[in-house]
Each structure stands twice: as C-alpha cells, then as structure tokens.
C-alpha cells in the first residue's frame, strides 16, 4: 500500500510540477494588479517547444546536447527518492539523501558544462555564478539534513521527513525543525533560481544566472530544461512541505492530498516573496547562503541539547 502511495506521488509530481510556476506567476500578477498568464501556461510552452525544431551553435559539441538530457534524468531520479510528507520515496535506503544531493549536483555539473560549451561569455558568466552559489548551497542542504537525522535517528530522507509529526513539532525539538525549514527555504530559493538570489524574469543577460545559462538551447532540449526545472522545484519543495505540513493521518490519500496542497501553498508563498522583496546584490548572496548553513548548524545544536 505504501509503495502504491509512493508511485502515486511520483505520478502526481510528474503531472503537476509544471503548474507550480503558473501559481507563482499568478500570485505575482495579483500583487502587481495584473491578470497574468493562465495557470497552465507552462504546459502550453512545453507542448509548443516539443513540437519545434532546434538550432545548434557551430561551437557546441555533444556535451551541449547531453546537458538537458542528463539534467532531466537527474531530476526524475531525484523525484524517486524524495518523500512527500509521510509518503516515503519510491527509492529509500540509508544515506539516500546523499544520492539526492549529488544527483542535483550532477544536474548542475552538466548544465554548467553545456553553458560553457557555447563559448558565449554571457553563458560563461552565468555558469560561473551558478558554480559559485551552488558550492555554498550544497553544505547548507546537507547540514540541514544532518540536523534532521539527529532529530529522527533515521539515515533515510523518507524516515527523516516521516518523523516530523505534530507531536515532534510541539516537542522541544520543534524550534530546531523550524530552523531547518528556514535553511531549506533559502536553499530552495537559491537552487531554483528565485528571488532574492536570481530573477527568472529579468530581461538582461548580465543579471541572470540560471536563465542565461540556457540561452542557446531551443526546441525539445529547452523543453527538457524547463520541465527539469519544475521537477527540481517540486523535489526541493517537497522536502520543505514535509516539515511545514506535518499531516500524518495514516490514510495515505489524505497525507498525499495535504502534501500536494502544501506544494501549491508553497508556490503561492514564493509568489509573495518575489512580489515583496527585491533581489539581493550579487555580493550579498554568499552571506545569505552561509546564513542557511549557520541555521542548519544551530538546528543541530538545538536538537542535541
């Protein structure tokens, strides 16, 4: 039964992930007093891109083609590991969180290489920043998970998240979990190229990070990148929702529904964040990311106290 729930979660994620950016843009439009694009805009975009041809730069090699493919494969594999609240991941074992973190690392590795493969200095700049920020975000993510291990005594990410029950939140370890959630929120925003680290809607290549790296991709390749980005949003979001929506009723349908509701709420919160705060100056971003690591370590101290 639990395996069925896990599979249902993966299916839901594969189908619903592109709706999350729609929710974010709708909320932002509402704040700005606009109507905004339809909720399903991302699906239309994907559909359109999948039916287009492609243009490749003469400079590029097979690495440029491999970038989106490996990226999407990594995001899908990561989706198999991540739990949604009490619903365990399809693939769950001791130390699976390391595989999850390093799969995201592999995805980034290939995205950066594909960007450098074009020989464009804009894309090189984006690649440099991506490598820079992710080197600081990775310790924050893993330290947050170390703190969760200490709280749950589980070495598997499914076990860690399942241990976050209303009882646990009310216990003395509760504040520590909230600190972990704060750290993971920072990682979530940084890794998914959202404000205040990166602005997906800026129109200047010089100021973008993630979007500038994929300037040269087109057609199905670009569709894969966009889809992989929404899956990554789902993967890291599911971790956050796992802590912040501790619905553990025992009926998997209810738990999963609450989790998916949580994802939509999280997307709305991202919309609010993007509407209310400005992007950080590039030199301030490292401090923001190091703060996430510090929050994680603080959480660990609180748990072990």
């Amino acid at each position: 039964m639990t395996m069925l729930a896990s599979i249902v979660h993966v299916m839901c994620a594969l189908l619903l992930a592109p709706a999350l950016p729609g929710v974010i843009t709708r909320v932002k439009a509402w704040f700005a007093g606009r109507r905004g694009p339809p909720l399903l805009q991302a699906y239309y975009d994907l559909w359109k891109l999948l039916h287009k041809g492609a243009v490749y730069s003469k400079t590029t090699t097979w690495v440029f083609v491999a970038g989106p493919i490996v990226g999407l494969a990594c995001a899908m594999t990561a989706l198999l590991i991540v739990p949604m609240g009490g619903t365990a991941g399809v693939l769950s074992f001791s130390g699976d969180f390391l595989l999850l973190a390093y799969l995201l690392g592999l995805m980034r590795f290939f995205t950066i290489l594909a960007a450098l493969d074009t020989g464009s200095s804009f894309e090189g700049m984006g690649a440099s920043r991506e490598a820079f920020y992710s080197a600081l975000a990775e310790p924050a993510l893993l330290l947050g998970l170390v703190a969760m291990t200490a709280q749950s005594h589980s070495l598997s990410i499914s076990g860690m998240v399942a241990a976050v029950t209303p009882v646990a939140i009310a216990s003395p370890a509760g504040p520590a979990l909230l600190l972990v959630a704060a750290a993971l929120l920072i990682v979530f925003l940084a890794e998914n190229a959202r404000i205040p680290v990166d602005d997906p809607n800026t129109h200047l290549e010089l100021t973008m990070i993630h979007e500038v790296m994929v300037l040269d991709h087109s057609g199905p390749d670009f569709a894969m990148i966009q889809y992989a980005a929404t899956l990554k949003l789902w993967v890291l979001g599911a971790l956050l929702v796992g802590i912040l929506v501790p619905v553990r009723s025992g009926w998997w349908g209810v738990d999963l529904g609450a989790g998916i509701g949580g994802m939509v709420a999280l997307a709305a919160v991202v919309g609010v964040i993007e509407s209310t705060i400005a992007r950080l100056r590039l030199v301030r971003v490292p401090q923001f990311l190091v703060a996430a690591s510090v929050l994680s370590i603080l959480a660990l101290v609180l748990v072990m106290r």
């Binding site: 041809g53 492609a54 730069s57 003469k58 590029t60 804009f122 290549e205 040269d216 057609g219």
Partner: peptide
C-alpha cells in the same frame, strides 16, 4: 522528436 523537424546550425547567440 527531432526526426522530422528542422535542425539548424548557427553561431552562438551573442545578444
């Protein structure tokens, strides 16, 4: 997906 579509070569996009 690309089998029956147009695949072109161009220079890198340089703004």
């Amino acid at each position: 997906l690309l089998v029956r579509r147009r695949v072109e070569q161009a220079v890198t996009w340089d703004c």
